[in-house]
Design a protein around this nucleic acid. Sequence first.
DNA 1: GTCTATAGAGAGATAGAC
DNA 2: GTCTATCTCTCTATAGAC
Lengths: 188, 188
Amino acid sequence: MTRDTRSALLDLAERIARSRGFDGFSYADLAEAIGIRTASVHYHFPTKAKLSEALIERYQTSLQNGLAEIEAAHASAGERLKALIALYRGALHDGQTVCLCVAFSTCRESLSDTVIARVGAVRAMVLQWIAETFELGHRDGSVSAIGDPSDEAPATLAMLEGAHLAARTEEDPAVFDAATRLLLARCQ
Amino acid sequence: MTRDTRSALLDLAERIARSRGFDGFSYADLAEAIGIRTASVHYHFPTKAKLSEALIERYQTSLQNGLAEIEAAHASAGERLKALIALYRGALHDGQTVCLCVAFSTCRESLSDTVIARVGAVRAMVLQWIAETFELGHRDGSVSAIGDPSDEAPATLAMLEGAHLAARTEEDPAVFDAATRLLLARCQ
DNA sequence: GTCTATAGAGAGATAGAC
DNA sequence: GTCTATCTCTCTATAGAC
């Protein structure tokens, strides 16, 4: 059952990290919720630093798959951007959790340079995807009022992450909806 | 010198909180930097909760003044929005500090409901100001491509806060500049 | 207002038995 | 893989002297 315990720990740690931050839980919290002792948690993840690396690596893969699925499911830029907004909206879970990049950004000092670099890599990946989508939008006309895609991408990602942050603070997904309404309206 | 010590503590605590988060410093850190003992810090702020309240209250006043100064200095909506972007850009301090709302949003669990409510009040204040500015832009024509001001405002604030977060993670103000370029270009 | 001294809790982590 | 037991460190906070 090693695999199961490890997966369960990762699932739980990700959920709490995205809800309360990486400093917002201890090995004691994980142990109690899973039903083992802290020493056993250390068996799976010798240090909290190792745990943070495992979390961000798994998250990158997961997000990469999410973006690929959107591309597979939607042909137009407008539909893809709508799906991206829906992806972030879903990641909110009733205003209780933000995306892991936002959560880790806010706990910068507790994380290793390796992990922070990986957060940057995840952001770069999403930025690239958004920029390409806006470029497609330029060609297929499914997004209105497009500026330079290399300007639209960072503005869009910042808006999505900022919307996550505010919605989490208020514990209200409607805050996210308000922030994304304008972009949504630009998508056909 | 009570007033001086208290002010020095507030200044220091705000700087660290905006850099490392509210959980990112201890009374021992404050004491060492100021040159007193932790017990003396407790004299000025009996609990960390009291300190957090003092921080957000002072911050609200400060931000309110900042917005008022922008209104006094600039007549057009475009100029005012440009000044708002500059205000947030200045608050970055070379990518080392985010605005206190962002910092406190990310330490949600460590803060009292009172403080979280105050963070919401600060955001509401800025939202109101931005919405009014976009309304002015509608009338004076100094901002291009304006959607519904009540949609522009939350999108703009989310973008500014998200840009702060990403720039802080990368420790690079250029990340903020990239995210705000599009809005800046809309301002005459 | 600042100090010494200390309480009390919780954190991350390890050794070694089973 | 999980356990008991324990270490060391840091944190917030308080009592009481000066």
